[in-house]
Design a protein around this nucleic acid. Structure first.
Length: 858
RNA sequence: GCCUGGGUGGCGGAAUUGGUAGACGCAAGGGACUUAAAAUCCCUCGGAGCUAAGUCUCUGUACGAGUUCGAUUCUCGUCCCAGGCACCA
């Protein structure tokens, strides 16, 4: 009988579905386990990244189920987003049609992979039954001031035709269009007040031991809390207060000028009617026209303009000039800084350029420092000088007392500052959740009344050929009446960032059919938090930070009890492959290359670096082709075997071949002796065994131990698979040389074979199920308990002991396991090879590690 | 510059608490079976050296020190790679 994966895989996945084996029901008497993989954007086809991500998850889900846990393993669709709009324009169809069609296609593929999802809980975020609750939460947030509209400077991506959140800008470019520079626009935008929760989110970074350190450190970094002070400077001839944030209040005596960010509204006020006004306004204009990346890049020269105004340094009472400078950020701190050219490199460069005053206030411990000799700022620790009552103190030691001194004078206070900004969620897009707000000329911004939800995205409109959102051009959508005054009003035509949908979908899986509110607390409280979340590292900040925020908002609204949505996080590596390039035809798909040559022009191809699989580099492998050729089990197995999950996976066609070979080997090891093994029951540890049988029995149980440990504690499926490979090798070797052919022998073989099949079943469920059935079982592997190793089976009569002389391995001997330390030592010292290396020298010391090694020191 | 990872054969990777470095697989080479091929099975496989034969010797986990009877593993320093943050006051 041949291994025919296509046939048996179809059979078993149909069987699982029919039996409803993946259905999860709330059962308080059982321990729950919520396993979740990041849901996909329905692009229409799964790619290897999905396959890897979902295979990892599926192994854990199946394993936990066999361990007796009540497993929730859902799947759904992150279904809003721009590609749908673009595709619709291209194909002259509708985003909804395109999206739902893709969902169907991808679902077929996921089913084909044999993933154990409870499809009854499937959800698509573009479904009004989903986003209506998101709109409701938005209204509640609006009510509480957690959602607000602000006219401000925002990131604009020309290709998205939309605003982006700060998190969605990478190196000054759009995260989706990495070649599109983001520009700054001033416009009305909706924000969610993530900063209100920043402290809590930051604190909890220390309470997430199940998260990878690098993700936590990226989040801490992004929140960017720093400790310092607000210091007040009085504007001369006005008495207005200018506040600056600094972490270096120890240098306040050296602050010899002040700089404003060009966006700062106070600047225009300050220069109004002054001779400098025109020059200042021109500078502001010029600076703001630059894209944000260029303006704030380190290599951009520091530039500024004097405003003509002065303020008073609160500790020296000195009149110091006020500048507008390009390097000062409006949305960090207060948008204005005190400049201490002697102890800050940026300020130093600025001061040199505009010939501004320098005053040293920190001197190195070992020498003096003179302003006119300085070629760069002195930024190290030192002793305070020219600092009034603080002279002679160590600068870092005086941070607190200077802050208190400022506070006592009413000139400032100690505080902290965050880098994190509120989450901008307005998108000038069509295919997203409408923001449930009405704008009335008379009443202003008015929330849509709850009973009018959902504000449904109209489906019967034409996409605009230039790619912009059709909503602002669709009177049937935007024309409405004001809920307050009943007058004519206009709907908000911005939609929400799609990251809002993905910030709570995991909660909704607990109760996808609930229609009384966003969440059914009883079910959500049973399932949440997610015990294990698995997804790509690219969401380290974006999705994972937003979700931690949104969960807390939902908690404070009483929808759920947890603060953290994901107890354990596994960030799997990328799937990579080398690129292949033809000098003539550019990057080639694997099928465009034959024997190292381009199929079109026969030119020799250039093999490039191994990089993340992407269509643009054409270094992709289509999972569908592989399934067709080898079956889903082989694909699953290779994804797990090639490397541990958190590392990048280097695609290797020969490796896939190897996995396929192994499955064939397993197949033969079972099928070739099926008549003999099905005549007996699996060995249960009772009958006495010969040494040879004992060895196989021991290997069987060692493998159970190893595989369990690898999956349970480390998610190291590669080593788990290796262990089963060893067992299978040992079984086939045993059968080759099999001398005993009695019932006991076959029952030990049967135990070994069944164990291999069961241990492999989470990884390659289809073939495992088929072999299990052939071994005479009639219940699915999904319903049988995960095997437990027997301690006594691991014990051996003889133990291998390594003999070292001066730490170098000189021999290996077998001793009875009953030997005491002394007996082992005696045996070791008597060993001929050990004696040779001692060569008569006096033995200084003998170290005996029980059951492991003896080291003789001479 | 700061923060996090990481550096082991030709390759992917093992070595879990400091105790046999290179499990398992891929590639390569040799052999068996076959008319032949495929498939399968067996053997070799870090480097260098020595031998009639190896139960042989030396060396080896980026580099340099250190702790230890013993270090891929712990400590310090250096170099390199990847990712994140960065004119953040």
């Amino acid at each position: 009988m041949k291994y025919e994966p296509q046939k048996l895989e179809a059979k078993w996945s149909a069987y699982w579905e029919r039996q409803g084996l993946f259905k999860a029901t709330e059962d308080p008497s059982k321990e729950k386990y919520y396993l979740l993989e990041m849901f996909p954007y329905p692009s229409g086809k799964i790619h290897m990244g999905h396959v890897r991500n979902y295979t990892i998850g599926d192994v854990v889900a199946r394993y936990k189920r066999m361990c007796g846990k009540n497993v929730l393993h859902p799947m759904g669709w992150d279904a809003f987003g721009m590609p749908a709009e673009n595709a619709a324009i291209e194909n002259n169809s509708h985003p909804a049609q395109w999206t739902y069609g893709n969902i169907e296609a991808m679902k077929v593929q996921l089913r084909r992979m044999g993933f154990s999802y409870d499809w009854d809980r499937e959800l698509a975020t573009c479904d009004p039954e989903y986003y209506r609750w998101e709109q409701l939460i938005f209204l509640k947030m609006y009510e509480k001031g957690l959602a607000y509209k602000k006219r401000t400077h925002v990131n604009w991506c020309e290709k998205c035709q939309s605003v982006l959140a700060n998190e969605q800008v990478e190196n000054g470019c759009c995260w989706r269009h990495t070649d599109q520079e983001v520009t700054i626009k001033e416009m009305d935008s909706w924000f969610l007040k993530i900063t209100d929760y920043a402290e809590e989110i930051l604190d909890y970074c220390d309470k997430l031991p199940g998260w990878p350190e690098r993700v936590l450190s990226m989040q801490r970094n992004w929140i960017g809390k720093s400790y310092g002070a607000i210091i007040r400077f009085l504007l001369v001839d006005s008495g207005e207060v200018i506040e600056v944030f600094t972490t270096r209040q120890d240098t306040v005596y050296g602050a010899t000028f002040l700089c404003f960010a060009p966006e700062h509204p106070m600047v225009k006020e300050m220069v109004k009617g002054l001779p400098k006004e025109k020059e200042v306004l021109e500078f502001i204009d010029r600076t703001l026209k630059m894209d944000s990346y260029m303006r704030t890049a380190e290599f951009t020269a520091k530039e500024g303009v004097f405003t003509g105004r002065y303020c008073l340094n609160p500790v020296t009472d000195e009149k110091i000039p006020i500048f507008v400078a390009n390097f000062v950020l409006f949305d960090y701190g207060t948008g204005a800084i005190m400049a201490v050219p002697t102890h800050d490199q940026r300020d130093f460069e600025f001061a040199k350029k505009y010939d501004l005053k320098l005053r040293v206030v920190i001197k190195p411990p070992d020498r003096d420092l003179h302003e006119d000799e300085m070629t760069e700022a002195y930024v190290d620790e030192g002793i305070l000088v020219n600092s009034g009552p603080f002279d002679g103190q160590r600068n870092l030691g005086a941070l607190d007392s200077i802050a208190e001194f400022l506070e006592s004078k009413g000139s400032g206070y100690k505080t902290t500052n965050l880098r994190l900004r509120d989450w901008g969620i307005s998108r000038q897009r069509y295919w997203g959740t409408p923001i449930p707000i009405i704008i009335c000329d008379k009443c202003g911004t008015v929330p849509v009344p709850e009973e009018d939800l959902p504000v449904v995205l109209p489906l019967d409109l034409d996409m605009r050929p230039n790619g912009g959102s059709p909503l602002p051009f669709e009177p049937s959508f935007y024309e409405t009446t004001c809920p307050k005054c009943r007058g004519k009003a206009r709907r908000e035509t911005d939609t929400m960032d799609t990251f809002v949908e993905s910030s709570w979908y995991f909660d909704r899986y607990a109760c996808p059919d609930y229609d009384q509110g966003p969440l059914d607390s009883e079910r959500v409280d049973y399932w949440m938090p997610v015990d294990q979340y698995i997804g790509g590292i690219e969401h380290a900040i974006l999705h994972l930070l937003y979700s931690r925020f949104y969960t807390r908002v939902m908690r404070d609204f009483g929808h759920l009890k947890v603060s953290e949505p994901f107890t354990n996080l596994l960030t799997q590596g990328m799937v990579c492959k080398e690129t292949q390039e033809c000098p003539e035809h550019g990057y080639l798909y694997p099928y465009e290359v034959k024997d190292g040559r381009c199929v079109q022009c026969q030119a020799e191809i250039i093999t490039g670096n191994t990089v993340k699989m992407s269509k643009s580099k054409r270094n992709v492998v289509d999972p569908e082709d592989l399934i067709e050729r080898y079956g889903a089990d082989t694909v699953r197995m290779f994804c797990l075997f090639a490397s541990p999950p958190e590392k990048d996976l280097e695609w290797n066609d020969q490796g896939v071949e190897g996995s396929y070979r192994f499955l064939n080997r397993v197949w033969r090891v079972v099928v070739d002796h099926i008549d003999d093994t099905t005549k007996v029951t699996a060995y249960g540890g009772k009958e006495a065994l010969s040494d040879r049988l004992k060895a196989l029995h021991r290997k069987t149980h060692q493998t159970i131990k190893k595989v369990t440990d690898d999956i349970e504690n480390r998610f190291h499926f590669n080593t788990a698979i290796s262990a089963v490979m060893e067992l299978v090798n040992e079984i086939s070797q045993f059968m080759n040389e099999m001398v005993e052919k009695d019932e006991t022998a076959w029952s030990v073989v049967r135990e070994a074979v069944e164990t291999a099949v069961v241990l492999l079943s989470p990884v390659v469920p289809h073939i495992a199920e088929e072999l299990w059935y052939m071994l005479g079982h009639d219940k699915s592997l999904l319903t049988i308990p995960w095997p437990v190793y027997r301690e006594e089976a691991l014990e051996a009569e003889k133990i291998l002991v390594v003999l070292q002389v001066n730490g170098k391995v000189r021999n290996r001997i077998e001793v009875p396991s009953s030997y005491s330390q002394n007996e082992i030592e005696t045996e070791a010292l008597a060993d001929e090879r050990v004696q040779r290396f001692i060569s008569g020298k006096p033995v200084k010391k003998v170290i005996v590690v029980k059951n492991k090694l003896v080291n003789v020191v001479v």
